[in-house]
Amino acid sequence: MRAIFIRHGESTGNAGVPCHDLATIELTERGQEQARHVAASWAEAPSLIVTSPYTRTRQTAAPTIARFPAVPVETWPIEEFTYLQPARWNGTASAERMPHLERYWSAADPDGSVAKIVKLEHAWRRLDGRNDDGFQVAPFPG
Protein backbone atom coordinates (compact mmCIF):
# COMPACT_ATOMS: atom_id res chain seq x y z
CA MET A 1 0.00 0.00 0.00
CA ARG A 2 1.08 3.56 -0.67
CA ALA A 3 -0.25 6.58 1.19
CA ILE A 4 0.26 10.04 -0.26
CA PHE A 5 -0.17 12.92 2.17
CA ILE A 6 -0.82 16.31 0.62
CA ARG A 7 -0.70 19.59 2.44
CA HIS A 8 -3.73 21.72 1.71
CA GLY A 9 -3.51 24.42 -0.93
CA GLU A 10 -2.74 28.01 -0.04
CA SER A 11 -5.29 29.17 2.49
CA THR A 12 -6.43 32.61 3.55
CA GLY A 13 -4.52 31.96 6.78
CA ASN A 14 -1.31 31.32 4.80
CA ALA A 15 -1.97 34.48 2.82
CA GLY A 16 -2.07 36.61 5.97
CA VAL A 17 -5.83 37.08 6.37
CA PRO A 18 -6.82 37.20 10.06
CA CYS A 19 -8.64 34.04 11.13
CA HIS A 20 -11.11 33.32 13.90
CA ASP A 21 -11.51 29.57 13.65
CA LEU A 22 -8.74 27.29 12.37
CA ALA A 23 -11.29 24.73 11.19
CA THR A 24 -13.07 27.11 8.82
CA ILE A 25 -10.13 28.75 7.05
CA GLU A 26 -10.74 28.56 3.29
CA LEU A 27 -8.48 28.27 0.28
CA THR A 28 -7.46 31.33 -1.69
CA GLU A 29 -7.97 31.36 -5.47
CA ARG A 30 -4.33 30.27 -5.74
CA GLY A 31 -5.08 27.39 -3.35
CA GLN A 32 -8.09 26.39 -5.46
CA GLU A 33 -5.84 26.33 -8.54
CA GLN A 34 -3.27 24.23 -6.66
CA ALA A 35 -6.05 21.76 -5.75
CA ARG A 36 -7.14 21.54 -9.39
CA HIS A 37 -3.52 20.96 -10.43
CA VAL A 38 -3.16 18.11 -7.92
CA ALA A 39 -6.39 16.51 -9.15
CA ALA A 40 -5.18 16.66 -12.76
CA SER A 41 -1.79 15.17 -11.87
CA TRP A 42 -2.94 11.70 -10.79
CA ALA A 43 -1.87 8.98 -13.23
CA GLU A 44 -4.29 6.50 -11.66
CA ALA A 45 -7.33 6.59 -9.41
CA PRO A 46 -6.65 6.24 -5.69
CA SER A 47 -8.42 3.50 -3.76
CA LEU A 48 -9.40 5.92 -0.98
CA ILE A 49 -9.48 9.68 -0.51
CA VAL A 50 -9.20 10.91 3.07
CA THR A 51 -9.80 14.46 4.22
CA SER A 52 -9.83 16.11 7.61
CA PRO A 53 -12.92 17.99 8.83
CA TYR A 54 -11.14 21.28 8.10
CA THR A 55 -12.61 23.39 5.30
CA ARG A 56 -9.28 23.94 3.53
CA THR A 57 -8.53 20.21 3.33
CA ARG A 58 -12.02 19.41 2.04
CA GLN A 59 -11.61 22.16 -0.56
CA THR A 60 -8.19 20.78 -1.53
CA ALA A 61 -9.64 17.28 -1.98
CA ALA A 62 -12.78 18.41 -3.86
CA PRO A 63 -11.30 18.43 -7.39
CA THR A 64 -9.76 14.98 -6.86
CA ILE A 65 -13.08 13.70 -5.50
CA ALA A 66 -14.85 15.15 -8.54
CA ARG A 67 -12.34 13.54 -10.89
CA PHE A 68 -12.75 10.11 -9.26
CA PRO A 69 -16.42 9.95 -8.18
CA ALA A 70 -16.35 6.16 -7.66
CA VAL A 71 -13.52 6.36 -5.08
CA PRO A 72 -14.64 6.19 -1.43
CA VAL A 73 -14.10 9.35 0.60
CA GLU A 74 -13.62 9.33 4.37
CA THR A 75 -13.23 12.15 6.88
CA TRP A 76 -10.66 11.40 9.56
CA PRO A 77 -9.61 13.52 12.56
CA ILE A 78 -6.30 14.59 10.98
CA GLU A 79 -6.45 17.99 12.58
CA GLU A 80 -4.31 20.98 13.28
CA PHE A 81 -2.06 20.64 16.29
CA THR A 82 -3.16 23.72 18.24
CA TYR A 83 -0.62 24.95 20.74
CA LEU A 84 -1.52 28.62 21.05
CA GLN A 85 -4.51 29.58 23.19
CA PRO A 86 -7.30 30.20 20.62
CA ALA A 87 -9.08 32.90 22.65
CA ARG A 88 -5.90 34.98 22.71
CA TRP A 89 -5.10 34.63 19.00
CA ASN A 90 -8.52 34.68 17.31
CA GLY A 91 -8.72 37.42 14.72
CA THR A 92 -4.96 37.67 14.25
CA ALA A 93 -2.95 37.17 11.09
CA SER A 94 -0.22 34.59 10.72
CA ALA A 95 2.44 37.32 10.78
CA GLU A 96 1.28 38.32 14.27
CA ARG A 97 1.39 34.70 15.49
CA MET A 98 4.64 33.69 13.79
CA PRO A 99 7.14 34.98 16.41
CA HIS A 100 5.21 33.11 19.11
CA LEU A 101 5.01 29.94 17.00
CA GLU A 102 8.72 30.06 16.27
CA ARG A 103 9.54 30.59 19.94
CA TYR A 104 7.25 27.70 20.92
CA TRP A 105 8.73 25.26 18.42
CA SER A 106 12.35 26.25 18.97
CA ALA A 107 11.91 25.43 22.65
CA ALA A 108 9.58 22.44 22.37
CA ASP A 109 10.64 20.86 19.08
CA PRO A 110 13.77 22.39 17.52
CA ASP A 111 13.68 20.36 14.28
CA GLY A 112 9.88 20.27 13.84
CA SER A 113 9.63 16.48 13.88
CA VAL A 114 7.12 16.26 16.74
CA ALA A 115 4.65 18.55 14.96
CA LYS A 116 4.77 16.41 11.83
CA ILE A 117 4.38 13.18 13.78
CA VAL A 118 1.45 14.50 15.82
CA LYS A 119 -0.41 15.53 12.67
CA LEU A 120 0.03 12.18 10.96
CA GLU A 121 -0.06 9.72 13.87
CA HIS A 122 -3.79 9.09 13.71
CA ALA A 123 -3.73 8.64 9.94
CA TRP A 124 -0.91 6.10 10.16
CA ARG A 125 -2.86 4.13 12.77
CA ARG A 126 -5.93 4.03 10.54
CA LEU A 127 -3.93 3.00 7.49
CA ASP A 128 -2.06 0.28 9.38
CA GLY A 129 -3.54 -3.10 8.72
CA ARG A 130 -5.47 -2.13 5.57
CA ASN A 131 -5.23 -4.82 2.93
CA ASP A 132 -5.16 -2.51 -0.01
CA ASP A 133 -2.98 -2.58 -3.10
CA GLY A 134 -3.92 0.94 -4.15
CA PHE A 135 -2.87 4.27 -2.80
CA GLN A 136 -4.66 6.70 -0.54
CA VAL A 137 -4.73 10.47 -0.81
CA ALA A 138 -4.98 12.53 2.38
CA PRO A 139 -4.87 16.35 2.32
CA PHE A 140 -4.09 17.58 5.82
CA PRO A 141 -3.95 20.92 7.56
CA GLY A 142 -0.53 22.36 8.08
Rank of each mutant, 00 (worst) to 15 (best):
A3P: 13
I4C: 09
I4M: 08
I4L: 15
R7G: 02
R7N: 02
G9A: 08
E10S: 01
E10K: 02
S11H: 03
G13W: 12
G13I: 09
G16Q: 08
C19E: 14
H20W: 15
D21W: 08
L22Q: 06
A23W: 14
I25Y: 07
L27P: 09
T28D: 09
E29W: 05
R30N: 15
G31P: 11
Q32A: 15
Q32F: 10
Q32I: 14
Q32M: 15
E33I: 02
E33G: 08
E33Y: 03
A39N: 05
A40N: 08
A40Q: 12
S41K: 12
S41D: 15
W42C: 04
W42V: 00
A43K: 12
E44G: 10
A45E: 11
A45H: 04
A45P: 13
P46M: 00
P46E: 04
S47Y: 01
S47T: 14
S47N: 03
L48T: 04
I49S: 07
V50N: 02
P53N: 00
P53D: 03
P53Q: 00
Y54V: 01
R56K: 03
Q59M: 13
Q59E: 13
T60C: 07
A61M: 03
P63K: 03
P63G: 03
P63T: 01
T64G: 08
I65T: 06
I65W: 04
R67Y: 00
R67E: 01
R67D: 01
F68H: 09
P69Q: 11
P69Y: 13
V73P: 10
V73R: 06
E74W: 02
T75E: 15
T75H: 02
T75S: 14
W76V: 03
P77M: 01
I78Q: 05
I78E: 09
F81E: 13
T82R: 05
Q85H: 11
Q85D: 15
Q85R: 07
Q85G: 05
P86G: 00
P86A: 00
P86E: 02
A87C: 03
R88D: 14
W89P: 12
W89K: 00
N90K: 12
N90D: 10
N90V: 15
G91P: 08
G91L: 09
T92D: 06
T92Y: 09
A93F: 03
A93I: 00
S94C: 11
A95Q: 10
A95T: 06
E96F: 00
M98Y: 04
H100F: 13
L101G: 10
E102A: 11
E102F: 03
R103F: 08
R103K: 13
R103A: 15
Y104C: 06
W105M: 10
A107M: 06
A107D: 09
A107F: 01
A108H: 09
D109Q: 02
D109E: 05
P110C: 04
P110Y: 01
D111W: 00
S113D: 11
V114K: 08
V114E: 14
V114G: 13
A115Y: 12
K116D: 13
K116R: 13
I117P: 07
L120W: 08
H122N: 06
A123P: 12
W124C: 12
W124S: 07
W124N: 04
R125H: 14
R125W: 03
R125P: 04
R126H: 10
L127A: 13
D128P: 02
R130T: 08
R130H: 09
N131W: 12
F135V: 01
Q136F: 09
Q136D: 14
Q136N: 11
A138F: 13
P139Y: 02
G142D: 12
G142C: 11
